[in-house]
Amino acid sequence: MQIHLKNRRAIVTGSTAGIGLAIASGLAATGAHVVVTGRTQARVDEALAAIAKDVSGASLSGVAGDLGTQEGAEHLIKQVPEADILINNLGIFEPKAFFDIPDEDWLRFFEVNVMSGVRLSRHYAQGMAKRGWGRIQFISSESGVQIPAEMVQYGMTKTAQLAVSRGLAETLAGTGVTVNAVLPGPTRSEGVGDFFGKIAADKGISQQDVERDFIATHRPSTVIKRLATVEEVANMCVYLASEQASATTGAAMRVDGGVVRSIV
């Protein structure tokens, strides 16, 4: 299968590192014009340079701003009024015991992980529907199905994304716009790597040992018995953004290494 998205404009939120950067790079390789977003111009510029280095002839632009706020969303929409592909990847996580999570954290996680995608989808989906073609994705998580006790606030937002994704797919029925959720499992992203690296330094052990302990203790149902790579997750996202994925909508596509014990 060869995926070609030339003349399509794709926005990938939170795309200066990790899964978002891998998705942006993968879409650029298909010929799409990719809009990279991040909180600071310096991070956006670094990501643009990294993609340009890896993808010869990549068509790129960048917008800096905090998409976890209404003001940030409005700024992006002003800079990029229309898009054919929207990947709602922006997200934050933080392990914290349930009884230690204050109201402010619940609201902050919902604003960043859920409302960022709601605001952008509300705008861009209307233009997609009028043009009769579009692709919207929400990067959820297996944590939205199996809520982790150590991150209930995170799991809550990932479940909410599943509801929004399916509801929006129903709203856009028959328009030529597909809406799907992607559920990565434990993935070796920059954020996860930094988190595991800190644990390794504190315990005086290797990061590989921390990863193995995490898999054995917190995700023992995994079938691949390792963390996924960001590229493995991005491959699914690039396919769902393609012309070939036109019959896949309203779905929750797992790239979780088999963590979720389900046959559907």
Rank of each mutant, 00 (worst) to 15 (best):
Q126F: 02
A49F: 02
L27M: 10
W133P: 01
I199A: 10
S61N: 12
S262L: 03
G68C: 08
R188T: 01
I11T: 11
Q244H: 14
V145A: 11
L227D: 08
L168P: 05
P184E: 12
G185R: 10
I77D: 13
G193N: 13
A64M: 05
V192P: 00
K6H: 12
P184D: 11
L21I: 00
T217I: 01
G38R: 01
R9T: 15
D209C: 00
A228Y: 10
T157F: 09
I224D: 13
T157A: 10
E94H: 11
A251P: 03
F98T: 11
V264M: 12
L27H: 13
T187M: 06
E170L: 08
R108H: 13
G57A: 05
V44C: 14
L227M: 14
V12K: 00
K198P: 01
A28Q: 10
A28V: 03
G144M: 05
T229S: 15
S262E: 12
V63H: 12
V12R: 03
F214N: 07
K203W: 11
L21R: 02
V35M: 07
D103W: 13
C237Y: 07
T187D: 14
S206V: 00
G62M: 04
T175L: 02
F98S: 09
N235Q: 14
N89Y: 07
I87R: 02
D66K: 02
Q207W: 01
D194M: 02
V192A: 15
T37E: 07
A181V: 01
I87H: 00
K96M: 13
S221W: 06
K96P: 01
I199Y: 09
V177N: 06
G14Y: 03
S189L: 05
G68T: 08
D66M: 04
S189T: 15
P95Y: 11
T178D: 04
V223R: 15
G250T: 12
T30A: 10
G144E: 09
A160M: 05
A169V: 01
I199D: 10
A125H: 09
A83T: 03
A49K: 11
S143D: 14
G185E: 13
F110W: 13
K225W: 07
Y154F: 14
R9Y: 09
R119H: 13
D103G: 01
G31N: 07
L120V: 03
S246G: 09
A83I: 01
R39Q: 13
F93I: 04
T30L: 05
L183D: 09
V35S: 07
G132R: 06
Q207L: 06
K198H: 11
A52E: 14
V152D: 07
V259P: 03
G127H: 12
Q2A: 05
